[in-house]
Design a protein around this nucleic acid. Structure first.
Lengths: 255, 255
DNA sequence: CAATCTTTGTGCACGCGTTCACAAAGGCAT
DNA sequence: ATGCCTTTGTGAACGCGTGCACAAAGATTG
């Protein structure tokens, strides 16, 4: 390698698949752990195992960032940590606001992993006047009336919504109007946002329902005689669930 | 969709695509809202709008469940609520345990949406002896020593892990050994589980990093002169970020 | 310097998921 | 009953993501 950096950006920053972007934080976490153990280099096979993915996938993912590996050796851990951090935008500081300081909002405010990597809680905001000024995670709670000013003064572009579902869209609209262009939504609501604003949602109840679906399927399989796969609590449930997924009558029939 | 292991022959779940399963809870939520407003029928177009998806996708999703619509009219709301609930396994009760009663675990225990739909918190478990017996969300905290017994007595097949990252795999192993076959993981760790166990992960820091990536890209676009799309805080950030994504020197160079 | 060994980077094929577009089906008015 | 109008259900095309398998590249050894 003659020069360490002679790649043209034309093909690069535009072409990273979304699926790859979603895995970069995973790689970064594994690499950080290696870095803390002062491991100098790592092969795609090892790193893939640590991140829980296929090694070919990992190599292809890295290939979108550039050719940062050395054949016959592997990847330089420190260098890769830096490259991925830079690609993810973690070399700069991202102030975020959390709106809705209930149980969940307070828990997130206290969450250490928040500040660890480029993210900084700029403000906690709540609509309840009795919350205003209270200390949560060593920080005063602001009233939602000041939302716009807080966003603008701090240059916040990422907002976290932990309000009840009913208030989420309203809060979202205000955040967006004030200049926020990325939203992490914990409220059980489908948010509507203008073009150019990114929303990611975290929904406990959806996750549980997906698990329940698979759990039910497993239980049905057990009942069907495909027993002895894993000694499970599901088997107990299966025995208890008399109505199979196909065996009962709808409570309500269509007209 | 996240198992810790490479091989994933699963996903042939009785013919319903995984992507569809993941959307069913969304439809169910929208339908429940309609049901509460006593709306008798709904078209795929309306429901799709409420759920934030494409109407053709919604119709195809429903087609995997059967032909529950009426051409020229739409879908019977109550009937569909029942069918989806049944498909997701929500007509039965799912006891869950939450392991790790810190800020997040306590917040989840208090979360109303938990019990709302088929899920019931059977126990709160923590490793800290000083937590044992304390009341959280109107429920006593159990010690982790009793984990296996709690799982078995209550027939728990779904576990929620809200421990620190370091303890997650250990807790996971014990849950699985005791019979749990579905795990919702909030700890920032890649869990390794045996075949037949489902893991879904919720990772705040990963979500934020993905948002940061897109945010950085937007800021770069703004700098490049594609201004005037949305009046954003990102523009302020873009102006402030002197080093563009291509313009600085790595802190660490490879050997 | 040449041979060997390790590991990357990627061409290729395959399968899943999404979307379009439309025929079939049912309701409704006349 | 007949024709019109609405909406479903789905065939087909397309694009994305994944994983295999291998050639190229560099390190290493004698």
């Amino acid at each position: 390698m003659a020069t360490g950096r002679n790649h043209r950006p034309a093909t690069r920053s535009r072409g990273i698949p979304e699926a790859t972007v979603a895995r970069l934080p995973l790689y970064l976490r594994a690499l950080t752990a290696l870095s803390e153990r002062s491991v100098p280099t790592v092969s795609s096979e090892e790193l893939a195992a640590a991140a829980g993915v296929n090694s070919a996938k990992l190599r292809k993912d890295f290939s979108y960032l550039g050719s940062y590996g050395t054949r016959g050796v592997g990847y330089d851990v420190e260098y890769l940590v830096y490259q991925i951090s830079r690609e993810l935008g973690l070399t700069q500081d991202w102030p975020v606001v959390i709106v809705g300081i209930g149980n969940l909002g307070a828990a997130l405010a206290n969450y250490g992993g928040f500040a660890s990597r480029g993210f900084r809680v700029a403000a906690l905001i709540d609509a309840d006047p009795s919350m205003t000024g209270k200390q949560v995670a060593g920080m005063g709670v602001s009233h939602v009336d000041d939302l716009e000013e807080i966003i603008q003064v701090n240059g916040v572009s990422i907002g976290v919504i932990t309000t009840p579902g009913g208030a989420a869209q309203q809060v979202c609209d205000r955040l967006v109007a004030a200049g926020v262009t990325s939203i992490l939504n914990f409220a059980p609501t489908v948010l509507t946002v203008p073009e150019g604003v990114d929303v990611r949602k975290v929904d406990l109840s959806i996750e549980l329902q997906i698990l329940a679906f698979h759990e039910q399927r497993k239980a049905a399989d057990e009942l069907a005689g495909n027993g002895a796969r894993v000694p499970t609590a599901a088997r107990r449930r299966a025995a208890r669930a008399d109505e199979g997924p196909e065996g009962d009558i709808p409570a309500v029939m269509p007209a």
